[in-house]
Computed example of a mutant assay.
Amino acid sequence: MTILIPRRTFLVGSATAAAAMTVGQEARAAGPVKAAWVYVGPVGDFGWSYQHDLGRKAVEAALGDKVKTSFVEKVAEGPDSERVIRQLAGVNDIVFTTSFGFMNPTERVAKQFPKVKFEQATGYKTGANFAEYNARFYQGRTVAGTLAGLLSKKGVAGYVGSVPIPEVVMGINAFTIAARKINPNFQTKVIWVNAWFDPGKEADAAKSLIDQGADFINQHTDSPAVVQTAEARGVMAVGEASNMQNFGPKAQVTSNMDDWGPYYIERIKAVIDGTWKSQSVWLGMKEGAVAMAPYGPAVTPEAAAAADKVKAAIIAGTLDPFAGPIKNQKGELKVAAGQTIADADLQKMDWYVEGVQA
């Protein structure tokens, strides 16, 4: 059973939150596990929030009447999200918050509701009842960069960036590193739209990048507007979070896809059987959390074979996308040959590699 909760019903203030918590604890004692999701964008974005909602639906399909799910979409990061999370905590056993900007609000609410489980996507904080989960999206960017290096005739890619946090920066860098292994002169031009989901800004950024000479467009934003723009302008594109080929049947070369279903099923099963524990996990291609969409018509057999080889090496653990030598924008050596970047440093990445124009 799914419930879409109207945002105007959310309670505000400690007294109402405490009352809701009491009611919620009584309800949890009798009935199915109650699980809620908080989405930063609309479930119909065909990208990030859409994929998380497919994960929620996978939970329903797998667990049936053992679980009752709900979700709230289009929740702005910041104070508004804390109100939403607090209200959901009052009537649920576990709450999943699915954007980096929800991390601190989730942490604060988790301390107020110690009997409720909380899980936040793409952050780095944890607590006794507060877990973190993430995906190595940069692995998919490495595959896309390989395709860009082989397919781009101009050696120039455009990258529509959402919000300049380490997760997005490392994706830009991984893409560029992979492309420059094929074409040492490859350039990646970045335009930030400072939003996760804004189709108008995303389309405008893609148009500007194409006007600047890019014949290959990547994105870390949530709508299909970038792929649609690439289709209209006759350039290649990589979709984001889900397979966006329907929006650019000629343009899309592949898409960086997320699959959250198995993780959500596993974690809610843990709530059901009483084995849930806080953790911090970073899942990737090996675990199936990151996958690539089927290659589009612009991908040559040679490019497909090269991309498949890179993907297989990442899964096997024989290729680290951030293995040195790596130089920064200024040409300074940041990672020596034979060295790699530790996960803790990746999660704080605030610098661009050589070849990035941003």
Rank of each mutant, 00 (worst) to 15 (best):
P114Q: 10
R136V: 00
A89G: 15
V227K: 08
I165Q: 01
T176H: 05
N246H: 12
P164H: 08
A344M: 04
T69E: 11
M21T: 12
V67L: 15
A195V: 10
F197A: 08
D320Y: 03
S242I: 02
G90S: 09
L333V: 15
R233F: 04
P6C: 11
V310T: 15
T69C: 11
P301T: 05
A203R: 02
V91G: 06
V59Y: 08
R7K: 11
A76C: 14
K74G: 02
V143L: 03
G31R: 08
G47Y: 03
I94K: 03
D65P: 05
M1W: 03
T300W: 03
F71W: 12
G248E: 12
L63P: 09
I85F: 00
R141A: 01
M292F: 09
A230D: 03
R83H: 09
V356R: 07
I326A: 15
F118Y: 02
T106L: 05
R180N: 06
Y50D: 02
W276G: 02
D65Y: 06
K309T: 14
V109D: 04
I177T: 14
N194T: 01
T22I: 14
V193Y: 13
T318C: 12
D211R: 02
A206S: 03
F197Q: 03
F186L: 00
V143A: 05
R233C: 05
D93R: 06
R28T: 04
Q339K: 07
L333P: 14
A237Q: 04
Q228V: 15
P184V: 02
V43W: 11
N328G: 11
Q329A: 15
Y50L: 00
T2G: 12
T16S: 13
V91Y: 09
P262T: 12
Y263C: 06
W351L: 08
K125P: 02
G274S: 09
A312L: 12
A35F: 06
T340G: 10
G44L: 11
A20Y: 12
A289F: 10
A313I: 14
F137M: 01
T106G: 06
P164N: 14
T340C: 10
V156I: 15
F186P: 03
P42W: 09
E60A: 14
